[in-house]
Amino acid sequence: AVCQVIGMYDYTAQNDDELAFNKGQIINVLNKEDPDWWKGEVNGQVGLFPSNYVKLTT
């Protein structure tokens, strides 16, 4: 993983390639090539999510 982030809001996947997560959930970021849509993993599920829905862990 590149880094870990925390969901600031609940996110519901809109497409099959997206990653759903809940507020407060830890997401392992796998790829930040696109500044707006990062690739991440939660509980074995991998997908894209909007980078503005998360904050970096300290």
Score class of each variant (00 low, 15 high):
1 A>D: 09
1 A>E: 13
1 A>C: 05
2 V>D: 12
2 V>S: 10
2 V>W: 08
2 V>M: 11
3 C>A: 07
4 Q>K: 10
4 Q>I: 08
5 V>K: 04
5 V>N: 01
5 V>E: 02
6 I>G: 05
6 I>N: 03
6 I>R: 08
6 I>P: 00
7 G>D: 04
8 M>A: 15
8 M>I: 15
8 M>H: 11
8 M>L: 15
9 Y>I: 15
9 Y>A: 15
9 Y>H: 15
10 D>E: 07
10 D>K: 09
11 Y>C: 07
12 T>F: 08
12 T>G: 08
12 T>L: 08
13 A>H: 02
13 A>S: 07
13 A>V: 02
13 A>I: 04
14 Q>F: 01
14 Q>T: 10
15 N>A: 12
15 N>M: 09
15 N>I: 05
16 D>L: 09
16 D>M: 11
16 D>S: 09
17 D>P: 06
18 E>Q: 14
18 E>W: 01
18 E>F: 07
18 E>I: 01
19 L>A: 01
20 A>P: 12
20 A>Q: 14
21 F>M: 05
21 F>N: 01
24 G>I: 04
24 G>K: 06
24 G>A: 01
26 I>G: 01
26 I>C: 12
26 I>M: 07
27 I>T: 01
27 I>L: 08
27 I>A: 03
27 I>C: 05
28 N>M: 09
29 V>K: 04
29 V>Y: 07
30 L>Y: 09
30 L>V: 13
30 L>A: 01
30 L>P: 00
30 L>I: 14
31 N>H: 12
31 N>A: 14
31 N>C: 15
32 K>P: 04
33 E>C: 07
33 E>L: 07
33 E>N: 07
33 E>R: 08
34 D>F: 06
34 D>Y: 00
34 D>I: 00
35 P>D: 11
37 W>G: 04
37 W>D: 05
38 W>C: 03
38 W>K: 05
38 W>S: 03
38 W>A: 06
40 G>Q: 00
40 G>L: 03
41 E>A: 06
42 V>M: 12
42 V>L: 14
44 G>Q: 05
44 G>S: 04
45 Q>E: 12
45 Q>P: 03
46 V>E: 08
46 V>G: 04
47 G>L: 01
48 L>W: 14
48 L>G: 06
49 F>C: 01
49 F>R: 01
50 P>V: 00
50 P>D: 07
50 P>I: 05
50 P>F: 07
51 S>Q: 07
51 S>T: 09
51 S>P: 10
52 N>A: 11
52 N>E: 11
52 N>P: 06
52 N>G: 10
52 N>C: 10
52 N>S: 13
52 N>V: 08
53 Y>H: 10
53 Y>M: 15
54 V>R: 04
54 V>E: 00
54 V>L: 01
55 K>P: 02
55 K>H: 08
55 K>F: 05
55 K>T: 11
56 L>H: 09
57 T>G: 12
57 T>E: 07
